[in-house]
Computed example of a mutant assay.
Amino acid sequence: MPDRTHSPVAVVAGGSAGVGRACVEMLLTRGLKVAVLARGQGRLDEMHQEFGDRVWTRSVDVSDALAVNKAAHDIAEDFGTPEIWINSAMLTSFSPFEQVDDEEFRRITDTTYLGTVNGCRAALSIMARGNIVNVGSGLAYASVPFQAAYCGAKHAIEGFTQALRIELARAERPITLSMVQLPAVNTPQFDWARNRMDQKPQPAPPVFAPEVAAKGILHAIDTDAREVLVGRSMLQLIAGNMVLPDLMEKQLAKIGVHVQKSKRSPEILEDNLDEPLESYPSKAEGSYGHIAETSGLVVDGDMARKALAFGGGAALLAIGVLLGRVTGPSGDTPARASSRRTKRGPNWMDAPPDYQRPAEYRR
């Protein structure tokens, strides 16, 4: 039988590149073992070479519910029962809606939305307690042109997550389900996504490094947050969409496509929609590091909404500055830490790599 007593286990679906890859590295730094699910076998092999037996990998298309479920049970059997599951896999296409056929639209939806659904179902089938994090986007609040399928999927994840969170609370299961809404992030998405624009796509400024997003995700886990907003642009999107949605749409009609263009010629490159682009290495960063910010606000979404409801947009931004934080090492408030102990025992997320959990919390 495998030795499961030394390190807690996390699962990252979509963990071989981009934000998921940044999460893997941060979780490993904290001393966890990490199971990585992704399509590209070559990138998974790279991660094995780099991290050794601290990672467990499986080539899985997250749109395949049976394959994800099988992987989850194999992780529990071979690697240890996870207490963290992060759903980060996604696909998109930078294309006018009328140029996206039914098959392409479904492919994006099946991976981005149903992949998250499949991950939650698989996680709940093996997890006794812990945290599930669904990675969302500012585009769940304010959609942009030329990414209709992706925006629709992110909106769907928001509704699904809320319904499932309510069910978990009703059943009194000691599992926290969080949404982390991300800003534009410098990931390989903009290098390998299907593109029908006349220029190479870019993340719409302000752009943040993948590590900023990953710190937001770990902050959600550390604090058991219902929702976390990453980056000042998320505050602007929420305020704008709630207060002046008509003006936002008019502005996006004018500049929404322009800000997604990089002024670089579109590369003649295979995209990753139907198959993983095996020539691309396993890394978190894309090609826009020169404009990516390495720190950003991390704000509790519920606090942000209360600020908007009671104090308007100016108060929302102010509370984001005061109660958010520039991303750094994650930590618990005393109240949150106490709450988390009822689910996971001692605060092992902040423990050094050689920390041994008490026997009653080991599996």
Rank of each mutant, 00 (worst) to 15 (best):
P183Q: 05
P174Q: 10
S178I: 03
A184I: 01
W192T: 14
W192I: 14
I217F: 04
K200G: 05
P203C: 12
F146I: 15
D191K: 11
A209G: 04
C151P: 04
Q236C: 08
F208E: 01
F160V: 00
Y150L: 08
H155T: 01
Q147V: 13
N186S: 13
P206K: 07
P174I: 02
M197P: 10
P203H: 10
L164I: 05
A193L: 12
A239R: 15
H155W: 06
M197A: 08
V230E: 10
I157F: 01
I217R: 08
I238L: 09
A153Q: 05
R170C: 03
K154E: 03
A149L: 11
I175Y: 00
A214C: 12
Q162P: 00
I157P: 02
R194P: 01
G216Q: 11
L168E: 01
T223C: 04
V207Y: 08
A214P: 09
A184C: 03
V228N: 03
M179W: 06
F208D: 00
Q162E: 10
G152M: 15
N186A: 08
L168G: 06
L218G: 11
V212M: 14
D222A: 14
I166E: 15
M197E: 11
F146G: 00
M179Q: 13
L229C: 07
N195K: 07
Q181F: 09
E211S: 09
T223Y: 03
D198R: 13
G216A: 12
P174N: 05
A214R: 05
L177P: 05
V228A: 03
G159L: 06
Q189P: 00
L168Q: 02
H219N: 09
A149S: 15
L164G: 01
L229R: 10
V228Y: 05
D222M: 15
I157Y: 05
R196E: 15
F160P: 01
M234L: 08
K200N: 04
S178Y: 08
M179C: 10
G159C: 04
I157M: 11
E172N: 12
G159F: 03
V228I: 14
T161Y: 12
P183A: 09
L218V: 10
Q181A: 06
G216T: 11
Q181T: 02
D198V: 12
K154Y: 01
A148Q: 13
L218F: 02
R170M: 03
P205C: 05
H219R: 13
L182F: 00
A193G: 07
H155Y: 06
E172G: 03
V230T: 12
G240Q: 08
T161V: 09
